[in-house]
Simulated scan of single mutants.
Amino acid sequence: MKQDQFNINTDLEGYLINFEDWNSKIAIKLANSEGIKLNKIHWDLIYFVRMFYKEYKMLPKIQTLISIITLKHGQIKGNSRYLIKLFPKKSVTQQISKIAGLPKPKKCL
């Protein structure tokens, strides 16, 4: 466990220890550490993933994330290639989980 200048507790890979410590400033800091500048679509997905996780204690499937993009931002952006452009490092689920303040996914495809 480590603590940074924002006084947030993360594991050694930078994932928040406590889901409730998350806020938008922390998300921006975590995104910056991943080389991502957050835009409207990022935020839509981050808030959706947090809501989904809070309700179901699991992450949504990639196809669900693509459906959210399609519904809110149209068919052109509603595909896996665009999702990977939004979260280009590691796996999409690992990056979105980290930025959304969720635990590291146990299984990433």
Rank of each mutant, 00 (worst) to 15 (best):
D4L: 03
I8T: 10
T10W: 06
L12N: 13
Y15L: 06
L16P: 08
L16T: 12
L16Y: 06
I17D: 15
N18F: 15
E20P: 12
W22T: 03
N23S: 15
N23I: 10
N23R: 07
N23L: 14
K25G: 12
I26P: 06
A27N: 10
I28T: 12
K29F: 06
A31D: 02
A31V: 06
N32T: 06
N32M: 09
N32R: 03
E34C: 07
G35L: 05
L38M: 06
L38D: 13
N39Q: 07
N39E: 05
I41L: 04
H42A: 11
D44N: 10
Y47R: 07
V49G: 00
V49S: 01
M51Q: 12
F52K: 04
F52R: 00
Y53R: 09
E55T: 15
Y56T: 10
Y56E: 13
K57Q: 14
K57R: 09
L59C: 00
L59S: 00
L59R: 00
K61F: 03
T64E: 14
L65G: 00
L65C: 09
L65Y: 05
I66S: 02
S67N: 12
S67H: 12
I69M: 04
L71V: 09
L71R: 08
K72M: 05
K72E: 07
H73V: 03
G74C: 10
I76S: 14
N79T: 15
I84S: 10
I84H: 05
K85Y: 15
K85Q: 10
L86M: 08
L86Y: 11
L86R: 10
F87Q: 02
P88Q: 10
K90D: 09
S91K: 01
V92L: 01
Q95N: 06
Q95W: 05
I96Q: 01
S97V: 05
S97C: 06
K98I: 05
I99G: 02
G101A: 12
P103Q: 10
K104N: 03
K104T: 10
P105D: 02
K107M: 15
C108N: 03
